[in-house]
C-alpha cells in the first residue's frame, strides 16, 4: 500500500485544481446566474497566450520566455482581460435574458475562443516548458514528491485565503456578497452592478490563468481542448457544492479530487478504466441525497 501521505497529497493537488476551477464558475454564477461554459476555453487561451501564433509543429515560445515573476502576472492578466472582454462584448447584452439563454451564449463564446485558437495554432498539441523550476521531486517527510504538487496545494490555499479576505474585509467584497444574496435588492441599495460583475469576471479569469499555469507546468502541453475536462469537473463541483455557494464549490472540488484518487487506488485493475463512471455514480448519489447541493446558495433555493 503506497504511503498515506503520498495519496493524501495526490488527492489534495487534484482537488486543488478542481476547486480553483469550481471557484471560477461559482463566482460568476453568484452575481449573474450564469454558468460560464467558456471558462475551460479561457484556460486554454491563457496557455496559448505564451506562444506566438503559428501552425508549425514546434511552437514559437514568445511571452513564455518571461521570467517567472513577470510570467505569472502576465498569464493572470490575460485570463482576467479575456473574461472582462467576454463580459463587455457578450454577457452584458444578456443581462436580462433567462439563464438558459446565457448558458447557450457561453457555449457559443467557448466555441469562438476554441476555433480562434485552432485557426492560429492548428489542432496539434504544442509542447511548452512553463516554470521549469517546478519540475523536480522534493523530499518531504520521507516521501519524494513532485514539487509542483506542493506548490499547487499551497497556491490554492493562498488563493482561498485571499478571496476570503477580499469578500470579508473590503467594500468590493461586501458588494459582491450582497449581489450574490439578492441582486435586485443590492442594486436598489446602491451596489454598482456593472462594477461588481466585472470584478467577478476578472477574478474568475485570473483563476483560469492560475489553472492554466499549473496545468501547463504539469503537462508541458498546450492543447486547444485542454480546458474541457477540468471545466466539466469544475461544473460538477459547483453543482454538488450548491450553485451559488463559493465555499460549497471549493469543498466539492476537493471532494471530487479525493474521490477520483481514492477510486484509482481502491478499484481492481479490471474496473479502473471505468473509474470516471464510478466517480460520476458517486456524484448522482450525492445529488439524490441533497438535490440542492451540499451547501446550497441562496440563488438555488429561490428557484426551487
Amino acid at each position: 500500500m503506497p504511503g498515506l501521505l503520498q495519496i493524501l497529497l495526490d488527492a489534495l493537488s487534484l482537488g486543488s485544481l478542481y476547486a480553483l476551477g469550481a471557484l471560477g464558475i461559482a463566482l460568476i454564477f453568484g452575481v449573474m446566474r450564469l454558468v460560464n461554459f467558456a471558462h475551460g476555453d479561457v484556460i486554454a487561451f491563457c496557455i496559448f497566450a505564451l506562444l506566438w501564433p503559428s501552425v508549425d509543429v514546434v511552437p514559437i515560445v514568445f511571452a513564455g520566455q518571461l521570467p517567472w515573476f513577470l510570467l505569472i502576472p502576465f498569464v493572470l492578466a490575460v485570463g482576467a482581460g479575456l473574461s472582462v472582454l467576454a463580459e463587455l462584448a457578450v454577457f452584458r447584452r444578456f443581462r436580462h435574458a433567462n439563464p438558459a439563454t446565457m448558458m447557450i451564449a457561453s457555449f457559443a463564446l467557448g466555441f469562438v475562443i476554441r476555433y480562434f485558437l485552432l485557426m492560429l495554432f492548428s489542432s496539434r498539441p504544442k509542447s511548452v516548458q512553463i516554470l521549469p523550476g517546478l519540475s523536480q521531486p522534493v523530499e518531504l517527510l520521507g516521501a519524494r514528491i513532485p514539487l509542483l504538487q506542493v506548490v499547487t496545494i499551497l497556491v490554492t490555499i493562498a488563493v482561498l485565503l485571499a478571496l476570503v479576505a477580499v469578500l470579508r474585509r473590503t467594500r468590493f467584497g461586501l458588494e459582491m456578497r450582497a449581489a450574490a444574496e439578492n441582486f435586485t435588492m443590492a442594486r436598489m441599495l446602491g451596489v454598482r452592478a456593472n462594477r461588481v460583475i466585472m470584478g467577478a469576471f476578472a477574478m474568475s479569469g485570473a483563476l483560469a490563468g492560475a489553472i492554466a499555469l499549473i496545468l501547463g507546468s504539469q503537462t508541458g502541453t498546450a492543447d486547444i481542448m485542454m480546458g474541457s475536462s477540468i471545466m466539466l469537473m469544475a461544473f460538477i463541483a459547483t453543482v454538488i457544492g450548491g450553485l451559488g455557494s463559493l465555499f460549497g464549490a471549493v469543498l466539492a472540488g476537493f471532494l471530487l479530487g479525493g474521490v477520483s484518487v481514492a477510486m484509482q487506488f481502491a478499484l481492481p485493475l479490471e474496473a479502473r478504466p471505468f473509474r470516471d463512471a464510478f466517480v460520476y455514480g458517486a456524484v448522482i448519489l450525492v445529488l439524490l441525497w441533497r438535490p440542492q447541493g451540499l451547501l446550497s446558495g441562496r440563488a438555488a433555493k429561490e428557484r426551487v
Binding site: L9, D10, L14
Partner: peptide, 18 residues
Amino acid sequence: TFVNDDVSIAAQITRIKA
C-alpha cells in the same frame, strides 16, 4: 490505467513508486 485527458496521473505514479 489512465485516460489521455486526465488532469493528473499522480495516483498512478504513487502506485509505481510503492
